[in-house]
């Protein structure tokens, strides 16, 4: 059955849909957790520490976090690999363009591929910036509140983050609805509800994530 799924264009789309929904679920939790920054450094840092102790004493320190990380890593790889292979197939299936050009599809639909690449690069930067601190001069492990304020005190930190979050909103807007179609749960009666959920998710996640750099820039969080 695995072979059937991976060999088929419909099956690969299923992989994209499922991995995308896993990441989307994570993003909702991640965004809500980020909002704790508005309650001050004590609560935010305590929350960050709690993330490492979830499931104790059954789970060892950071085990739950690592389980989540592995699931996400698998989801990202599955999503990107199937996106790459499907895109290759799509481009090969339509090698010559029409001479007469006309605007096609919505902005969110047309930017799925570029948006996805931007998001992939962002994830790498985001981890190097706020998890490992590799590209973050003055990074202090165990002090996430200070690190976040530090990142959003630089112009490039804000630009990278805000651009990526706008790309995320567009990606989710088309991606969530598309996932529903791929998994066959869309129908005429549900279409409006699915499109509304997609738009609300896109808007709430984008606004929620961007509120943090905006708060640092305006001095609400410092």
């Amino acid at each position: 059955m695995t072979r059937t799924i991976w060999d088929s264009s419909v099956g690969k789309k299923t992989v994209m849909a499922v991995s995308g929904l896993i990441m989307l679920l994570y993003l909702v939790v991640h965004m809500l957790g980020n909002l704790k920054i508005f309650f001050g450094s004590g609560e935010f840092n305590h929350y960050a520490h709690w993330l490492r102790t979830i499931g104790e004493p059954f789970m060892h320190y950071e085990w739950t976090l690592w389980v989540i990380r592995v699931v996400l890593l698998v989801a990202v790889i599955a999503h990107a690999t199937s996106a790459y292979q499907l895109s290759r197939r799509d481009i090969k299936a339509r090698p010559s363009k029409y001479v007469h050009k006309r605007p096609r599809a919505s902005y969110a639909t047309r930017t799925m591929r570029w948006g996805g690449i931007i998001l992939g690069l962002f994830i790498v930067w985001h981890i190097l910036d706020l998890t490992t601190g590799t590209v973050h001069p003055g990074f202090e492990s165990g002090r996430p509140y200070q690190n976040v304020v530090d990142t959003f005190s630089t112009w490039y930190g804000n630009v990278i983050y805000i651009v990526a979050m706008l790309a995320l909103g567009l990606h989710i807007r088309h991606g969530f609805w598309s996932a529903a179609q791929t998994l066959g749960v869309g129908s005429r009666t549900r279409d409006r509800a699915l499109k509304t959920i997609a738009n609300v998710l896109a808007l709430v996640l984008t606004v929620g994530f961007i509120s943090v750099p905006v708060a640092v820039m305006t001095g609400v969080v410092s």
Binding site: D7, R89, A93
Partner: peptide, 12 residues
């Protein structure tokens, strides 16, 4: 359909 070299659906 896949064997014939058609592309995949991106729901445009």
């Amino acid at each position: 359909m896949d064997d014939e070299g058609f592309g995949g659906c991106t729901l445009t």
